[in-house]
């Protein structure tokens, strides 16, 4: 791949991710509204919220690390998007595969955790401790899924997985159990109900977000766009054959994000230990069974 194309990809991919992410946030809020028989927010609401937060006159900072945390949270995702191949753009996907991406996605979380810690609010620290525990819960089925998929395709390179799937059929049909386990993990990864104990607004005052206002909160809203986009694209890449062109790709990623959202707004919340039990039981079992089918 020539260098010019690569640079253009690296610049374009986060922008595309952000725009699509905005629409995903809109979809999320619309789904919530429809399930609750409301009208829901106007079309540009996610963007308007972000502009509003960034244009606050007074911005409350708890020190340098608070700032750096938000910079890391957004910057980490900006970089991570270039590892996720989309139709026509491969970016850096050949420089680090699925394992690298998984660990790259921890950089924003680490940044957020540092920033929240600096806020000196115990609600935030409790939120982070619960979020890390949640990560421990959903990452175990998730790595099982990663192993199964990577073993099945014999590669960790995401763009190679896509081309293999387009040749021999979607991963979801070849590895249904892993796809199911992946969907479970996805629900936890998005941090939506029933696995949003780390936010728990009425209990720990939105946990990590407790001291975030102005552009700090705006940064987190931007991060949420990337988060939804990443989750959707990752699952599509692993199981739904990526995309040949943008139309079917968009349909797939929006569908992938819509499923957990519909589940989310019809469920109440699990406690941390119940989430651990659930995540370590059914998706892990399904995943291990799936690996057994894939390998033998």
């Amino acid at each position: 791949m020539e260098i010019g194309k690569r640079i253009a990809d690296i610049i374009l991919m986060p922008i595309v991710a952000f725009v699509i992410g905005l629409f995903m946030v809109l979809m999320l809020r619309k789904i919530a509204a429809k399930l609750q028989r409301r009208v829901g927010p106007p079309f540009f609401q996610p963007l308007i919220d972000i502009i509003k937060f960034y244009s606050k006159t007074t911005q409350v900072s708890h020190g340098l690390l608070h700032d750096i945390g938000i910079i890391m949270a957004v910057g980490g995702y900006l970089a991570a998007e270039s590892l996720l191949p989309v139709p026509g753009m491969d970016g850096l996907s050949d420089k680090g595969g699925i394992i690298t991406l998984t660990y790259f996605l921890m950089i924003p979380s680490l940044g957020l955790a540092l920033g929240v810690g600096q806020c000196a609010n115990p609600n935030g620290s409790i939120g982070i401790s619960r979020a890390l525990t949640a990560m421990l819960a959903y990452d175990i089925p998730f790595v099982i899924v990663i192993f199964g998929v990577a073993w099945h395709y014999g590669t960790t390179d995401l763009s190679e997985m896509i081309s293999l799937q387009q040749a021999q059929g979607w991963g979801a049909f070849e590895m249904p159990l892993l796809a199911l386990a992946g969907l479970f993990a996805l629900q936890g990864m998005m941090g939506k109900q029933p696995f949003e104990i780390y936010v728990a607004p009425a209990e720990i005052a939105t946990g990590p977000m407790v001291e975030m206002g102005g552009k700090y909160m705006g940064g987190l809203f931007v991060m949420q766009c990337f988060q939804l986009y990443t989750a959707g694209v990752l699952y599509t890449t692993l199981f739904l054959g990526g995309g040949t062109h943008w139309l079917d790709f968009l349909i797939k990623i929006f569908a992938v994000v819509a499923i957990p959202m519909m589940i989310a707004f019809t469920f109440p919340r699990y406690r941390t230990e119940d989430m651990l039990r659930l995540m370590w039981k059914w998706p892990v079992l399904a995943g291990l069974l799936g690996i057994a089918f894939v390998m033998y």
């Binding site: 690296i10 708890h62 700032d67 910079i71 910057g75 900006l78 690298t100």
Partner: peptide, 27 residues
């Protein structure tokens, strides 16, 4: 090398976005 460069480019863009908007005050 590539990954770290892109990561720091991401941090750079993010820092620009952060420091170009609204002045903050430490409390």
């Amino acid at each position: 090398i590539m990954l770290v460069l892109v990561l720091f480019a991401g941090f750079g863009v993010s820092a620009l976005l952060f420091y170009a908007t609204g002045r903050s005050e430490p409390v």
